[in-house]
């Protein structure tokens, strides 16, 4: 008979990001699109440079580096990880699923459960909820939630609106059972939503089964996505607070998906979140899709904005449309 695991709480124990070396700066964008000055791009997007993976660096490599950093820093035995979730929309292959390749590369146990979660900007919140559910159901004890995307491979030179927004990075989040910290480190509740009428607002049509002959091109209707965000996200945050029976001020820090500064400023104000309780990490790396929330959490820990004992609200939204929000009691302290 196998191990019988008691159902207990799950907790976010550590987070680590990996940012590739390449950079696309506003000056370079401005030379490609002379009608835009570098200052205009910064003012309108809040982004100064975008992190770009090397041509031979895949999303899995970004996630692998982040995972390695986390495993080394937290001194984890990879054999103890029994759940691996890799959130990506730019997998290495159609099949097998990239998480199987990462299981081997990271030296995780062959007893571990590994699967991909092909969501975008909402993906980290979904992954966290799935990891928590599996841990609390007793199906696993130690989860590694990895994110990584290389969206710029899908960007065509003529599409300046997407070229100006997206960057590339990976992140790793460790979620463990919390038997030793009763009442602290809880994950949840969550609120989720989906609206497939927005499928065409952010889409890569070509290369997969529906349009195999079409080229892969990232098409984005920014104003439509913004309209969706304004309609959905303030209500999502308030639905989450209602579910948790909390007020806005009971949440110490909000980490939204870092889409672009302009959009987030408006969403923050509309939701009623105070400026000092809103975390940012956009300027140097751009919108790194499913990695923005863990990267921002990492920065907030390093800067001291996020401290153990705080309650964090995480809000992911975008491609799909897909959205989700959740709460985390933060326990994770210093980082080297």
């Amino acid at each position: 008979m196998g191990r019988v695991l008691e159902a207990q709480g799950a907790s976010v124990t550590a987070v680590a990001g990996y940012v590739p070396q390449g950079r696309l700066c506003n000056e370079e964008l401005s030379s490609r699109y002379p009608e835009w000055s570098a200052e205009d791009i910064l003012r309108k997007t809040g982004i100064r440079t975008r992190a770009i993976a090397a041509p031979d660096e895949c999303a899995s490599d970004l996630a692998f580096e982040a995972a390695k950093k986390l495993i080394n820093r937290e001194d984890i035995d990879p054999e103890d990880v029994d759940l691996l979730i890799f959130c990506t929309q730019s997998p290495d292959y159609f099949l097998p699923t990239t998480s199987c390749i990462l299981q081997e590369r990271l030296g995780l146990s062959t007893q571990s459960m590994a699967f991909d979660l092909p969501l975008g900007c909402s993906g980290w919140v979904y992954g966290l909820s799935v990891a928590r559910a599996l841990l609390e159901a007793g199906e696993a004890t130690t989860a590694l939630l990895l994110t990584g995307d290389t969206y710029t491979r899908y960007v065509l030179p003529e599409d300046r609106n997407v070229a100006a927004i997206f960057g590339e990075a990976g992140a790793a989040t460790l979620i463990t059972k919390r038997s030793d910290l009763p009442g602290h480190g809880a994950i949840g509740p969550f609120v989720f939503g989906t609206d497939g009428t927005g499928a065409e607002a952010l889409i890569v049509r070509g290369g997969a089964s529906r349009h195999p002959q079409k080229r892969r091109r990232l098409e984005m209707d920014g104003p439509r996505i913004f309209e969706f965000c304004l309609r959905r996200i303030p209500g999502l945050v308030h639905a989450l607070l209602e579910k948790a029976e909390l007020d806005l001020d009971d949440v110490d820090l909000w980490v939204f998906h870092q889409a672009n500064r302009f959009m987030l400023d408006r969403l923050r104000k509309k939701t009623g979140i105070r400026e000092e309780r809103f975390a940012w990490r956009l300027e140097e790396e751009g919108n790194t899709v499913s990695s923005t929330i863990p990267l921002t959490l990492e920065s907030a820990v390093v800067s001291g904005q996020l401290k153990p004992g705080m309650r964090v609200g995480v809000v992911g939204f975008g491609v799909g449309y897909s959205w989700g929000a959740g709460l985390i009691e933060w326990t994770h302290g210093g980082m080297q």
């Binding site: 309108k44 997007t45 609106n161 209707d221 920014g222 104003p223 913004f226």
Partner: peptide, 10 residues
């Protein structure tokens, strides 16, 4: 343009 539409919606 696209960013102008965004700014107008905001």
């Amino acid at each position: 343009d696209s960013l102008g539409h965004l700014a107008t919606i905001a």
